[in-house]
Amino acid sequence: RNRTTFNSSQLQALERVFERTHYPDAFVREDLARRVNLTEARVQVWFQNRRAKFRR
């Protein structure tokens, strides 16, 4: 699988949700994935990586 590149509008939407919660539930992830046209799995991994970055 190739690395996913996120465009600025996708990142903006992802970061907005991250500000609200670092652990979005499945419903939030599904909705977000639909809105930014990504798979739920990509959204889930983005949050895992974003939390790791946040802890650094």
Results as ranks from 00 to 15, higher is better:
residue 35 R to P: 05
residue 12 Q to V: 05
residue 6 F to V: 11
residue 23 Y to N: 04
residue 46 W to Y: 00
residue 41 A to F: 05
residue 23 Y to H: 09
residue 47 F to M: 02
residue 24 P to N: 00
residue 37 N to T: 04
residue 35 R to L: 06
residue 36 V to M: 09
residue 31 D to S: 11
residue 32 L to C: 01
residue 21 T to L: 02
residue 37 N to Q: 07
residue 34 R to A: 09
residue 24 P to F: 00
residue 20 R to H: 13
residue 42 R to L: 14
residue 43 V to H: 00
residue 37 N to R: 02
residue 2 N to I: 05
residue 32 L to E: 01
residue 47 F to K: 10
residue 13 A to Y: 04
residue 14 L to S: 03
residue 53 K to V: 13
residue 50 R to I: 11
residue 7 N to W: 01
residue 22 H to P: 15
residue 27 F to E: 15
residue 26 A to R: 12
residue 42 R to I: 13
residue 42 R to H: 10
residue 4 T to D: 12
residue 52 A to G: 03
residue 11 L to M: 08
residue 40 E to N: 02
residue 54 F to T: 01
residue 10 Q to S: 04
residue 50 R to C: 06
residue 47 F to T: 02
residue 28 V to H: 03
residue 29 R to P: 01
residue 15 E to S: 00
residue 29 R to H: 00
residue 15 E to L: 07
residue 53 K to S: 12
residue 15 E to K: 01
residue 11 L to P: 00
residue 31 D to W: 09
residue 46 W to R: 01
residue 27 F to I: 12
residue 20 R to M: 11
residue 54 F to N: 09
residue 55 R to V: 10
residue 17 V to G: 02
residue 30 E to F: 05
residue 3 R to Q: 10
residue 56 R to G: 13
residue 43 V to T: 00
residue 9 S to Y: 09
residue 6 F to R: 05
residue 13 A to W: 09
residue 6 F to T: 02
residue 44 Q to H: 05
residue 54 F to R: 03
residue 3 R to E: 12
residue 19 E to R: 06
residue 6 F to L: 15
residue 39 T to H: 00
residue 23 Y to C: 01
residue 4 T to L: 08
residue 29 R to L: 13
residue 8 S to R: 09
residue 13 A to I: 03
residue 37 N to L: 03
residue 55 R to N: 11
residue 47 F to I: 04
residue 18 F to K: 03
residue 41 A to V: 06
residue 31 D to M: 08
residue 41 A to L: 06
residue 46 W to L: 03
residue 56 R to H: 06
residue 53 K to R: 11
residue 45 V to W: 13
residue 41 A to R: 09
residue 21 T to Y: 07
residue 2 N to Y: 09
residue 40 E to P: 09
residue 34 R to T: 09
residue 31 D to K: 06
residue 8 S to K: 11
residue 24 P to D: 00
residue 8 S to Y: 08
residue 46 W to E: 00
residue 35 R to W: 02
residue 25 D to P: 07
residue 4 T to I: 05
residue 12 Q to S: 11
residue 25 D to V: 04
residue 51 R to G: 01
residue 32 L to H: 00
residue 20 R to Y: 09
residue 8 S to H: 13
residue 49 N to I: 06
residue 31 D to Q: 10
residue 26 A to K: 14
residue 34 R to F: 03
residue 55 R to I: 03
residue 21 T to I: 05
residue 34 R to L: 07
residue 20 R to K: 15
residue 25 D to E: 05
residue 23 Y to A: 00
residue 14 L to T: 00
residue 20 R to F: 13
residue 21 T to Q: 04
residue 24 P to E: 02
residue 48 Q to T: 08
residue 41 A to H: 08
residue 37 N to D: 09
residue 27 F to D: 13
residue 24 P to T: 06
residue 20 R to D: 08
residue 53 K to T: 15
residue 3 R to F: 06
residue 14 L to W: 01
residue 7 N to V: 05
residue 43 V to A: 00
residue 52 A to Y: 06
residue 28 V to T: 15
residue 27 F to L: 12
residue 34 R to W: 04
residue 38 L to S: 11
residue 24 P to K: 04
residue 48 Q to C: 00
residue 11 L to Y: 04
residue 23 Y to T: 06
residue 27 F to Q: 15
residue 44 Q to S: 12
residue 9 S to A: 12
residue 48 Q to L: 11
residue 11 L to R: 07
residue 4 T to K: 10
residue 21 T to R: 01
residue 32 L to Q: 01
residue 25 D to K: 04
residue 38 L to Y: 07
residue 25 D to Q: 08
residue 23 Y to E: 08
residue 26 A to Q: 11
residue 2 N to P: 08
residue 35 R to H: 07
residue 22 H to A: 15
residue 43 V to M: 02
residue 33 A to S: 07
residue 54 F to D: 13
residue 13 A to L: 11
residue 50 R to D: 01
residue 23 Y to F: 07
residue 28 V to Y: 03
residue 36 V to F: 13
residue 11 L to A: 09
residue 31 D to A: 10
residue 41 A to C: 12
residue 43 V to W: 08
residue 21 T to N: 11
residue 34 R to S: 07
residue 29 R to Y: 10
residue 28 V to M: 12
residue 1 R to T: 14
residue 16 R to Y: 10
residue 12 Q to A: 10
residue 28 V to P: 01
residue 40 E to W: 15
residue 51 R to C: 00
residue 56 R to F: 15
residue 38 L to C: 09
residue 33 A to R: 06
residue 5 T to H: 05
residue 16 R to Q: 13
residue 52 A to Q: 02
residue 39 T to V: 03
residue 13 A to V: 08
residue 5 T to M: 08
residue 40 E to Q: 08
residue 26 A to M: 09
residue 55 R to Q: 15
residue 50 R to A: 14
residue 10 Q to C: 02
residue 11 L to D: 09
residue 4 T to H: 15
residue 17 V to F: 02
residue 49 N to P: 04
residue 36 V to T: 14
residue 31 D to V: 05
residue 43 V to I: 14
residue 16 R to W: 12
residue 10 Q to E: 03
residue 18 F to D: 02
residue 36 V to D: 05
residue 45 V to G: 13
residue 28 V to A: 10
residue 27 F to G: 15
residue 5 T to L: 04
residue 35 R to M: 06
residue 45 V to T: 10
residue 9 S to C: 05
residue 51 R to F: 03
residue 17 V to H: 05
residue 12 Q to F: 10
residue 54 F to W: 05
residue 1 R to M: 11
residue 38 L to E: 03
residue 46 W to T: 00
residue 19 E to A: 15
residue 53 K to N: 12
residue 7 N to C: 04
residue 44 Q to D: 14
residue 21 T to E: 07
residue 1 R to L: 06
residue 50 R to L: 07
residue 12 Q to M: 11
residue 5 T to I: 14
residue 32 L to M: 05
residue 15 E to G: 02
residue 43 V to C: 03
residue 55 R to E: 14
residue 32 L to I: 12
residue 3 R to P: 11
residue 35 R to Y: 02
residue 7 N to E: 11
residue 29 R to F: 12
residue 30 E to H: 08
residue 27 F to T: 14
residue 37 N to G: 10
residue 41 A to I: 07
residue 37 N to H: 07
residue 36 V to G: 04
residue 23 Y to M: 03
residue 13 A to C: 05
residue 26 A to I: 07
residue 47 F to L: 02
residue 28 V to G: 03
residue 52 A to P: 01
residue 12 Q to K: 08
residue 37 N to V: 02
residue 9 S to E: 15
residue 18 F to R: 04
residue 56 R to D: 15
residue 38 L to P: 00
residue 29 R to E: 00
residue 25 D to C: 09
residue 54 F to M: 12
residue 52 A to E: 15
residue 30 E to S: 11
